[in-house]
Computed example of a mutant assay.
Amino acid sequence: MSETILVTGAAGQLGQRVIHHLIETYKVAPGKIVAATRSPERLVALANRGVVTRKADFDDAADLEKAFAGVDRLLIISTDALDTPGKRLGQHKAAVAAAVKADVKHIAYTSMPAPDNSLVTFAPDHLGTENTIKASGIAYTIIRDAWYHDNYLHSMPHNLQGGKWYSATGDGKVSTISRDDCALAIAATLASGTSESAAYTLTGTVSLTNRQIAAIVSEAAGKPLEVVDVNDEQLGQGMRGAGLPGFIADMLVSADANIRAGNFDIVTGDFTKLTGKQPQPLKDFFVAHKAALTAAGGATH
């Protein structure tokens, strides 16, 4: 494939895995991959493998246009600017505008399931970005990643230590998928050379309630875990009391509310359609990460 692929957020966990799968799984020549990030000095290992590295600052429109020059296919990984409402959407709009100026042929974007029907605090960022990309006139692939298995590794070690998981999801169900599986499917779309516009939602094969998830965690870790039902206010207070920043607590409470409302109860076959594989089940993920789950001292990042 002669196309040049640029990955933003290349120093982040998802970006690193996408580039890994482009090279290792889909055999894209490293010289055809551009890894972009605000701090290119963090990309030395990729540069040593022959990957082109560039600076891309989402708060600098001219910088983005320069970074995207000569690129055929652009992956915009959603930024982590969640502390200021509207900031992330502004960054994404700047990236799309720069892509238009740089004459990029295809934009891929990492979104979330059903952003038009969501209680999650950052859903408007994703919906607004999707609409901006669609209005740009550039062919696109939108990849809506479900909640990561990996997200549970932040809270479950602490929950297992105390034997209690405080949850506001009620009887709602959620289908989760590993970050690495999302990276594999994203890399598949980037390497495919498609000129069609499409949207995919990457999920696991089943939707689970909090009690079903607790049972899976408990079995994998070899420790009991009881779900304690709380309301949104109690959950938010508990998270703030544990030292989480307000915007993170609000985001996590909104995610529980979204599950409770049934808005994350989505299962698709899109992962298999894109990769030809089955996604890693939550149980297998927890077994593989048992050391992190049972680590002393609580949360692991």
Results as ranks from 00 to 15, higher is better:
Leu235Gly: 13
Glu219Cys: 10
Thr189Ala: 10
Ala249Asp: 13
Met251Cys: 03
Ala296Pro: 05
Asp229Leu: 09
Gly241Trp: 11
Leu252Phe: 15
Arg240Val: 02
Leu235Trp: 11
Ile266Cys: 06
Pro245Ile: 15
Ser195Trp: 09
Ala214Pro: 06
Gln280Glu: 15
Gly298Pro: 09
Asp180Glu: 12
Met239Trp: 13
Ala183Trp: 04
Asn210Pro: 05
Phe264Leu: 10
Ile177His: 00
Lys290Ala: 15
Asp265Ala: 08
Ala188Thr: 06
Ala291Ile: 08
Pro279Gln: 09
Leu184Tyr: 03
Ala249Gly: 07
Thr203Ile: 11
Leu235Val: 10
Gly269Cys: 08
Arg211Glu: 15
Glu226Ser: 02
Gly276Val: 12
Pro224Trp: 05
Lys290His: 05
Val228Cys: 05
Cys182Asp: 05
Phe271Leu: 00
Val206Tyr: 11
Ala183Gly: 12
Gly262Phe: 03
Thr275Phe: 03
Lys283Gly: 03
Glu226Lys: 06
Tyr200Asn: 04
Ala221Trp: 11
Pro279Asn: 11
Asp181Ser: 06
Pro245His: 03
Gly222Asp: 09
Ala249Phe: 04
Arg211Phe: 04
Ala261Phe: 01
Arg240Met: 05
Ser254Pro: 06
Leu293Lys: 08
Val206Phe: 09
Thr294Tyr: 15
Tyr200Ser: 00
Ile248Gln: 15
Thr201Lys: 00
Pro245Gln: 10
Ser207Phe: 14
Ala188Phe: 03
Gln278Leu: 08
Ala185Arg: 00
Glu233Pro: 02
Asn210Trp: 07
Ala299Arg: 12
Ser254Val: 02
Gly262Asp: 03
Ala185Gly: 12
Ile177Gln: 02
Ala292Glu: 15
Lys290Gln: 02
Gly243Met: 05
Thr203Val: 09
Leu225Trp: 13
Ala183Lys: 10
Asn231Val: 01
Pro245Phe: 06
Leu190Gly: 04
Ala261Asp: 13
Asn263Gln: 15
Asp180Pro: 01
Gly246Tyr: 03
Gly297Ala: 12
Pro279Met: 05
Ala199Tyr: 08
Ser218Arg: 01
Arg179Leu: 15
Thr205Met: 04
Ala261Trp: 00
Thr176His: 06
Phe271Asn: 03
Val217Cys: 05
Tyr200Gly: 03
Arg260Ala: 06
His289Lys: 12
Ala183Met: 06
Asn263Asp: 09
Glu196Tyr: 00
Ala242Ile: 08
Thr194Val: 12
Leu235Tyr: 14
Ala215Arg: 01
Leu293His: 02
Asp232Ile: 14
Gly241Leu: 11
Ile213Phe: 13
Arg179Phe: 07
Val227Met: 12
Met239Ile: 14
Phe285Asp: 14
Thr205Tyr: 11
